[in-house]
Each structure stands twice: as structure tokens, then as C-alpha cells.
Lab assay of single mutants.
Amino acid sequence: VRQEELAAARAALHDLMTGKRVATVQKDGRRVEFTATSVSDLKKYIAELEVQTGM
């Protein structure tokens, strides 16, 4: 499950970095929206997932 969450989070980051205004991911069973202003929060979430998956 964590691998899927990590892939979704990375895709969301890619979307935001390429101009999409809002990206949505499932985080702990709930839907979370990230915007360009919350990229740093999304990067932290990705880092947490990488630690949890041993990457």
C-alpha cells in the first residue's frame, strides 16, 4: 500500500511542478489536496513515505 501512496504522491508533485493548480492524494485513508503553495508539505509527505518503504 505504501508503494502505491508513494507513487501517487510523486505523481501529484509532478503535476504541481508542471503547472497543475491542485493535486489530490489519499493520505491515511482520507483525501488531501495540495497546491503550489503546499509543495514543501507534499515533499515532506513523500520523504516520510520513502522512509516507511525503505527507499
Rank of each mutant, 00 (worst) to 15 (best):
L49T: 01
E5T: 08
L16F: 02
A8W: 07
A47S: 10
V1I: 13
T35C: 09
G19A: 02
H14T: 08
G29P: 01
Y45V: 05
V1L: 12
S40G: 15
G54C: 10
K27W: 03
A8E: 12
V32N: 04
R21T: 15
V39Q: 05
V22G: 05
I46R: 00
S40A: 13
A36K: 11
V32G: 03
T24W: 05
V1N: 15
K43F: 08
Q52F: 08
A47G: 07
K43D: 04
E50W: 04
D15L: 09
R21Q: 15
A8D: 08
T37D: 15
Q52W: 07
Q26W: 09
E48S: 08
D41W: 05
D15F: 04
A9G: 02
V51E: 15
A47K: 13
G54D: 13
E4N: 11
G54E: 12
V25C: 07
L42Y: 00
L13K: 00
E5S: 08
T24P: 05
V22N: 07
R2T: 11
S38W: 01
S40M: 08
K27G: 04
I46M: 02
M55A: 13
T37V: 10
E48C: 10
V32M: 11
T37M: 10
A9I: 04
Y45P: 00
K43M: 13
K20N: 08
A11V: 08
S38V: 05
R31Q: 14
R2D: 10
L13P: 00
L16V: 03
A47H: 13
E50S: 06
T53R: 07
K44I: 10
A12C: 03
A23M: 01
D41E: 14
A23N: 02
R30A: 10
R2G: 12
H14W: 06
G19N: 05
I46W: 01
G29N: 05
M17I: 08
T18I: 09
A9H: 03
G19Y: 00
K27R: 13
Q26D: 10
A47V: 08
E5K: 07
E4A: 13
M55F: 04
A9P: 00
L16T: 00
M17A: 07
R30M: 15
A36L: 12
K44R: 13
Q52A: 12
Y45W: 15
L42M: 02
R21C: 11
T18K: 10
L13W: 04
Q26K: 09
L16C: 02
A12F: 02
E33R: 07
R10Q: 07
I46V: 05
T37E: 15
K20L: 08
D15T: 04
F34H: 04
V51L: 14
M55R: 11
A11G: 07
I46C: 02
T24F: 07
V32L: 12
T35F: 10
K44W: 07
E33Q: 08
A23C: 06
V1K: 13
V22Y: 06
T35D: 15
L13A: 01
G19E: 03
D15N: 07
V1Q: 13
G54R: 09
A12P: 00
A36S: 12
V22E: 07
Q3S: 13
D28K: 04
A47D: 08
A12I: 03
R30I: 14
R21N: 12
L6E: 02
R31H: 11
T24A: 13
M17H: 06
A9R: 00
V32H: 07
Q3I: 14
A7L: 12
D41I: 07
Q26G: 06
V25L: 10
V22M: 09
D41G: 05
G54I: 06
I46F: 01
E4D: 12
D41A: 09
R31C: 12
H14S: 08
L16K: 01
T37F: 06
F34Q: 03
D28F: 00
K27N: 05
L49G: 01
Q3M: 14
D15P: 00
T24N: 07
D41T: 06
G19I: 01
A9F: 04
A23R: 03
E4V: 11
R30H: 11
H14R: 10
D28I: 01
E4P: 08
H14K: 10
R21D: 14
M55H: 13
A12D: 01
I46D: 01
A12Q: 02
Q3L: 13
R30K: 14
A9D: 00
V51N: 13
S38I: 05
L16Q: 01
A9W: 02
V32Y: 09
R31D: 15
M17F: 04
L13V: 02
S38N: 15
M55E: 13
T53E: 13
G19D: 05
E4S: 12
M55Y: 03
S40N: 15
Q26R: 07
A7W: 09
K27D: 03
A23S: 06
V51D: 12
A47Y: 11
K43A: 08
G54P: 04
T18R: 10
K20H: 12
Q52V: 10
T53S: 14
D28N: 09
D41R: 04
S38E: 15
D28W: 00
L42T: 00
M17R: 04
M55T: 15
T24M: 08
Q26I: 15
K20W: 01
Q26L: 14
L49C: 01
E50M: 08
D28G: 09
D15I: 05
L42F: 01
L13E: 01
K44Y: 06
F34G: 03
E33C: 09
A12G: 03
G29C: 04
R21S: 14
E5L: 12
L49W: 03
E33P: 03
V22L: 08
R2V: 14
K44P: 00
T37S: 14
E48W: 15
R31E: 15
V25I: 14
E33K: 06
D28E: 09
F34T: 03
V22T: 13
T24L: 07
D28P: 03
S40E: 15
E48K: 06
A7G: 06
R30E: 12
F34W: 05
Q52T: 11
R10M: 09
Q3C: 13
E5P: 06
G19H: 04
V1R: 13
Q52H: 11
K20A: 15
E5F: 06
L16Y: 02
T35R: 04
T24K: 05
E48D: 10
T35A: 06
L16M: 03
A47P: 00
Y45M: 09
E50A: 06
R10P: 00
T24R: 06
A12E: 02
T37W: 04
L49N: 01
Y45E: 02
E50C: 05
M55L: 11
L13H: 02
R10V: 09
S38A: 08
L49M: 06
R30D: 08
A11M: 09
S40L: 08
E33M: 06
R10T: 05
F34S: 03
D15S: 07
G29K: 03
R2C: 11
E4I: 11
T24G: 07
V1T: 14
H14G: 06
A36I: 14
D28V: 02
F34I: 07
M17T: 07
T53I: 15
D15H: 05
I46G: 00
E5R: 08
M17Q: 11
A8G: 07
T18H: 14
D41Y: 05
A9K: 00
R2N: 12
T53H: 11
E50R: 04
M17N: 07
A7T: 09
V22S: 13
D15V: 04
D28A: 05
D15K: 07
A12L: 04
K20Y: 03
A8M: 13
A12K: 01
T35G: 06
E50H: 04
R21V: 13
R21Y: 05
G54V: 05
F34P: 03
S38P: 01
K43I: 14
R10A: 04
A8L: 12
V32C: 08
L49H: 01
T37A: 15
L42G: 00
K44F: 06
